[in-house]
């Protein structure tokens, strides 16, 4: 199972790929919408990419709770 650090690193790569934000700017306290230029459509891409990468299911209902990168890391740690 991936560590919190590995998950953060993976998410940073995904956000970089999708939104073009430098990977080092993707930190636990950053908001996907407000800080990382990930709108609601791009967030779906981030979720699908994270599901594949970390072998986890993130139900549609859960996506709205993933406001920050930290929220996503915690969800993935708890559910993978």
């Amino acid at each position: 199972m991936a560590t919190q650090e590995e998950i953060l690193e993976g998410l940073a790569e995904i956000v970089n790929e999708i939104a073009g934000i430098p990977a080092e700017d993707v930190q636990l306290d950053k908001s996907f919408t407000d800080d990382l230029d990930v709108d609601s459509l791009s967030m779906v891409e981030v979720v699908v990419a994270a599901e594949e990468r970390f072998d986890v299911k993130i139900p549609d209902d859960e996506v709205k709770n993933l406001k920050t990168v930290g929220d996503a890391v915690n969800y993935i740690v708890a559910n993978s």
Binding site: L41, S42, V44, E45, V48, E51
Partner: peptide, 10 residues
């Protein structure tokens, strides 16, 4: 299905 881009329609 899951892999269809959410940007497809726009």
């Amino acid at each position: 299905v899951r892999r269809v881009s959410p940007h497809t329609v726009p």
